[in-house]
Nucleic acid binder design. Structure first.
Length: 577
RNA sequence: CGGGGCGUGGCGCAGCCUGGUAGCGCACCUGUUUUGGGAGCAGGUGGUCGUGCGUUCAAAUCGCACCGCCCCGACCA
């Protein structure tokens, strides 16, 4: 493509409303433009990258035996009522009515539609397993879209759904997708880790997230430092080694109420009473499916709501409002404790052996010292309810954890029979008995993958595309298009590279060399051929690699071969043989 | 939804406090000189100052309301 004819508006200045590197660069490189909050257009350059990512996904999904379908974005409410998610999904689900006042939504995901499709067509174990996938636009009315295409409301997603006759089969389908995802993100040129994750409102028994490692990632992940163990998980999910063994027996001291006027936070309590955060027990009141619950953790720990939600097995969970706190504890916020609280009490494992601790007094401006389990209050159950800290140890092997940040580009779930039961997706087994299909579902955010790729592959001049997803492989930069010799040579190189099947930009704009070099760097084309008067007089051109900055001066035929080799070398996936 | 910030040519901003002429850089158009890392000179196009109501002789500027956007929290590919 000739640059002079392209719709490629690059921007020199950093847009003021873009925060993350990938967001800034996607706008500056003319890949995307915002239509409205969380809704973006892809311009030609951006869309080429999207199509490259999609193509890699297609190839790997097909290789793994999945088949591509295309399901509707608009979905009837009845299906969602059948699965129970019409009421559960919340405000993220964009709902509307048609002219007959029938209710619909725009699909944020497609478990309902695909389950409906499969239950109507698959009748026997002989037709299983099947894996159907699509690449399609989803809409999730996110509370706060941000970072451009990284977290937006309308976005492209590859979603796949597997249907198996039994659990071992479903495990096999899951493993195949795990393998396919690993190949996909490797081919996209990214460093990633698969980590165990919380299943959220998709549901199911088990899941892995594919995390692209980046300091700017929204997710915290932990890894076991022992390579032989290999445990890795989202911080939300990360299991902490169970209760420690009891320390030296300490005698219980008498409970003592202390006046602590206007002392509410852990920091304030520490300062006022001269105690350490780990000597305090923090009491938070939650409302779980309409019922209050008091949750206890040590003062230096944070409650993990995802763990709490899964432990309590509740659909809705939120911190209690002020009036509920007053009602349950008898005091305003800041003085809640477990003694005499009008709610079930659950506590983190770390409390099991605590003695003589400080906690809220359930009375305004009072705390208590020397509180003790059993003697002063009862805990209904102990569980792992908090976030891991750098002091914690791996639950599997006892080694220390390492912390990192990542961007969730893919998520695979073992759904089990959640949807097949709710929607009666059944088949007849070889004995003629009706059985529920065992499902899995597997998502990849397309735009997010492209954005994550930029987060990992850029420098201060712009994007550095891996060859496999680059919008073009080569850009030819004649230093001066008004020089007829340079123009002619550029056209020849352009034609020759196209003939070799490469995707090429010829920067035929009447701009100064510096402008063209900067644009080429910004949009991140992996290889640049510079054609200038001095080299050309010797029949030579320069080939520069974007990533390394390495420049080779070569005669034209040698340059063509070098470029072709570099292309093959980088797109070739050696890592899988 | 709660907390914070911002809306002024396409982009980045100043002006607002202390009401009275809309201004700067980049981009864009014309001419000219230039041509290997974002050129120089000369001339030029383009703005309902987010929207509405109010205060005032007079509002980008003061007040109120609304809308939009960005950042921080609960969601997720």
């Amino acid at each position: 493509m000739r640059y002079s004819e392209m719709f490629l508006p690059t921007i020199r200045e950093v847009p003021s409303d873009a925060e993350s590197v990938s967001h800034q660069l996607m706008i500056r490189a003319g890949m995307i433009r915002k239509l409205t909050g969380g809704i973006y257009s892809y311009l030609p350059l951006g869309y080429r990258v999207i199509r490259k990512v999609e193509q890699i996904i297609r190839e790997e999904m097909n290789r793994a035996g999945a088949q591509e379908v295309f399901m509707p974005a608009v979905q009837p409410a009845e299906l969602w009522q059948e699965s129970g998610r019409w009421d559960m999904y919340g405000k993220e689900l964009l709902r509307f009515k048609d002219r007959h006042m029938r209710e619909f939504c725009i699909g944020p995901t497609h478990e309902e539609v695909v389950t409906d499709l499969v239950r109507n067509e698959i009748k026997t174990y002989r037709q299983l397993p099947r894996n159907l996938y699509q690449i399609q636009t989803k809409f999730r009315d996110e509370i706060r879209p941000r970072f451009g295409v990284m977290r937006c409301r309308e976005f492209g997603m590859k979603d796949a759904y597997s249907f198996d006759a039994d659990w071992p089969g479903a495990d096999k389908s899951y493993d195949k997708m795990f393998e396919a995802y690993s190949r996909i993100f490797t081919r996209c040129g990214m460093k990633f880790r698969a980590v165990e994750a919380d299943t959220g409102n998709i549901g199911g028994s088990f899941s892995h997230e594919f995390m692209v490692m980046a300091e700017t990632g929204e997710d915290a992940v932990i890894f076991c430092s022992n390579p032989g163990c290999g445990y890795a998980a989202n911080l939300e999910k990360a299991e902490i080694a169970g209760p420690e063994s009891p320390g030296a027996a300490e005698a219980m001291k008498p409970l003592e109420e202390v006046h602590t006027p206007d002392v509410r936070t852990i920091e304030e309590v520490c300062a006022f009473l001269g105690v350490k955060a780990e000597d305090i027990v923090k009491t938070l009141i939650f409302v779980c499916d309409g019922k209050p619950a008091a949750v206890l953790v040590r003062g230096d720990h944070e409650i993990n709501e995802a763990k709490l939600r899964s432990y309590l097995k509740c659909d809705s969970l939120e911190l209690a409002a002020d009036d509920v706190v007053l009602n349950v504890t008898g005091s305003p916020k800041g003085f809640a404790g477990a003694i005499g609280v009008k709610a079930d009490v659950v506590a983190d494992y770390s409390l099991m052996h605590m003695k003589n601790f400080v906690m809220g007094g359930n009375r305004e401006d009072y705390h208590v010292r020397n509180a003790n389990l059993e003697r002063d209050f009862r805990v209904k159950a102990f569980a792992d309810l908090r976030f891991a800290t750098p002091l914690d140890r791996c639950a599997r092997c006892g080694s220390p954890f390492e912390f990192a940040r990542g961007i969730e580009v893919g998520h695979i779930f073992k759904l089990g029979t959640k949807y097949s039961k709710a929607m009666k997706a059944v088949y007849l087994d070889s004995d003629g008995h009706e059985q529920y299909m065992v499902m899995g579902c597997y998502g990849i955010g397309i735009g997010r993958t492209a954005a994550a790729c930029i987060e990992q592959n850029h420098d201060d001049k712009g994007i550095i595309w891996p060859m496999s997803v680059a919008p073009y492989h080569v850009i030819i930069t004649p230093v001066n298009v008004n020089d007829s010799g340079l123009a002619k040579a550029s056209e020849e190189v352009y034609g020759a590279l196209l003939a070799r099947g490469l995707e090429v930009i010829l920067d035929d704009r009447d701009e100064r060399a510096g402008v063209k070099f900067n644009d080429a760097d910004l949009i991140g084309i992996p290889l640049r051929v510079t054609i200038g008067p001095k080299r050309l007089a010797e029949g030579k051109v320069e080939v520069r690699e974007r990533k390394s900055g390495e420049t080779k001066v070569l005669a034209v035929p040698a340059a063509l071969d070098y470029i072709t080799d570099a292309f093959r070398r980088e797109v070739d996936i050696k890592c899988f043989e």
